[in-house]
Write a protein that binds this DNA or RNA. Structure first.
Lengths: 138, 138
DNA sequence: TTCCTATTTAAGAATTATTCTTATTATAAC
DNA sequence: GTTATAATAAGAATAATTCTTAAATAGGAA
């Protein structure tokens, strides 16, 4: 039994072809795909799947902590890299890359945070140009 | 002449009632309003304005660096606080608050950033619960 | 001031992303 | 295998955003 099936069993989530296939695509694709991207990939194997199922399934996965939403610039993408990491976003081609920054992760938050209740996650987003787009713009 | 009119003159942007009014609303509202919020406010004074004009004007302002988009959880908001700051987001009520973190701003980025081209901005996003929502959830 | 032209606007249609409705199908427990 | 329940497909519905077109307006020129 793989990790996906284990999570489903643990949480009482039914294992369907559609869910397995969508999870497989997500796990083999670290490029922060959109729902559209996932739908097209999954459709190669499950010809009759509807886009609504992809939306529903990903919402379920998100709820169960299997994927994370990455929302930038009007485009909703999903990320299966659940380890602590941060994002670089190219303002030209909209590509998103992951990066790691342990020194930041260790930092204490400023105590000026105005009466905030509870912190679940802190994350860095870097906007700029990727290598290729910088070259092109020269 | 106010700062808005100065920017318009500098950049060759026409000053219209609609633009002045939308800027005025943004400048007097630091709560990260949505297009809908802005539209409703502006409509109090300019009865016939269309929502398309609000979209267009804000897109223009964004292009000219007068506002910044803050996109989270499917909701697009705009921020006129152009000083270097970061965001706290309440996962329950979706409220967004600004905070400042000079120690972070001074930090050097990790040199592991994989062949990235150019960095324009680095920003921290903190997800969690605001004071009120934490109380309610207890 | 008045006129002219390019730009901007309003209105509503069009598009796109996402969600809902309903009848059907598949899963997991028995 | 049977059955109750949950999940799915299909297409309709909704919501956010953008486009089209004709009319209005700003700002410069006469």
């Amino acid at each position: 039994m793989n990790s996906f099936e284990k999570v489903c069993n643990d949480k009482g989530l039914r294992i369907t072809h559609q869910r397995s296939e969508i999870f497989r695509i997500l796990a083999s694709n670290l490029t922060h795909p959109t729902v559209e991207n996932i739908f097209n990939k999954v459709r190669e194997d499950l010809k009759t799947i509807s886009i609504d199922t992809v939306y529903r399934t990903i919402a379920t996965f998100e709820e169960y902590g299997l994927v994370k939403r990455v929302q930038l610039d009007n485009i909703t993408r999903y990320d299966i890299n659940l380890s602590l990491h941060h994002h670089l976003i190219c303002s030209n081609c909209k590509k998103i890359e992951d990066f790691y920054w342990p020194d930041f992760d260790k930092m204490q938050l400023p105590n000026t945070i105005p009466g905030w209740g509870k912190v679940d996650m802190k994350q860095v987003i870097i906007n700029g140009l990727c290598h290729q787009c910088k070259k092109l713009k020269k």
